[in-house]
Design a protein around this nucleic acid. Structure first.
Length: 228
DNA sequence: GACCAGGCACATC
DNA sequence: GATGTGCATGGT
């Protein structure tokens, strides 16, 4: 049980989201390697388009480290075209796959032998892997208790007055990680629920009036058309 | 046709 | 450290 007011509030938001949306069963993938591929492909991209690219890779029987490593980058780019930024992402998939092959024999589970902070640093050294992608890989492919911060996380917290605009990634991450129990299952579900509410209600043009978190908005929130 | 979607690297100040 | 830019498809 969190001792701080912030912790209690974060847990309250979590419970309300869970009650409303139910378990999200993240990450939607058939293998740990597919999680990593998805983490690259979903960068600034709608998931529906990522699914198309993943389907193409699977149909080409390339959804494995050896496959991605050996396919010509040009052809890889063609296959993942629906996910956008396909030239960049083809290169990034090559980078992350090469890392996995050279450091862990292409076996995602073998990442377990490296401690979380060191592994996070290793991932961040890969060109094309930033903080969110690294944390997504750690949490959703590696079951490591690290909190993933994305555009939705930021937006929900901002609108609920819990962070200022322009708050840095690490600070938002610390908010969750210092005020909640260190639990990969909780972090997994919480982030997935934030995306669920984000996709449906907490968009750039918000739909707060029917949002399950509307009564959690601060007094006089500009996002509510009716005072509550 | 404008806006948006589960970022990141790099240049510049 | 803050800000700006390129990368690109597909849905609304």
């Amino acid at each position: 049980m969190p001792q701080t007011a912030t912790g209690r509030r974060l847990l309250s938001l979590y419970r309300r989201l869970f009650r409303y949306f139910g378990p999200q069963h993240w990450w939607p993938a058939r293998s740990r390697f597919e999680v990593i591929v998805g983490a690259i492909l979903t960068q600034n991209t709608a998931w529906i388009n990522v699914e198309r690219a993943i389907t193409a890779l699977r149909a080409a029987r390339l959804l494995n480290p050896r496959g991605i490593d050996s396919v010509p980058q040009k052809h890889l780019a063609t296959l993942i075209r629906p996910a956008g930024y396909y030239n960049m992402k083809a290169e990034r998939l090559k980078h992350v796959t090469r890392f996995l092959l050279t450091h862990y024999g292409g076996n995602v589970r073998r990442m377990r032998r490296t401690a979380l902070p060191e592994l996070r640093e290793e991932l961040l050294e890969i060109s094309g892997v930033g903080e969110e992608t690294a944390d997504s890989i750690l949490l959703y492919a590696g079951d490591r208790p690290t909190f993933v911060v994305d555009a939705y996380t930021r937006r929900v917290l901002e609108r609920h007055g819990m962070i200022a605009a322009n708050t840095r990634y690490g600070e938002i991450q610390r908010l969750f990680m210092t005020h909640l129990p260190t639990d990969a299952t909780l972090f997994n579900e919480y982030h997935a629920l934030l995306v669920a509410v984000g996709k449906t209600y907490c968009r750039r043009t918000p739909n707060c009036d029917s949002c399950p978190l509307r009564y959690d908005l601060p007094e006089g929130s500009p996002f509510l058309s009716r005072p509550e």
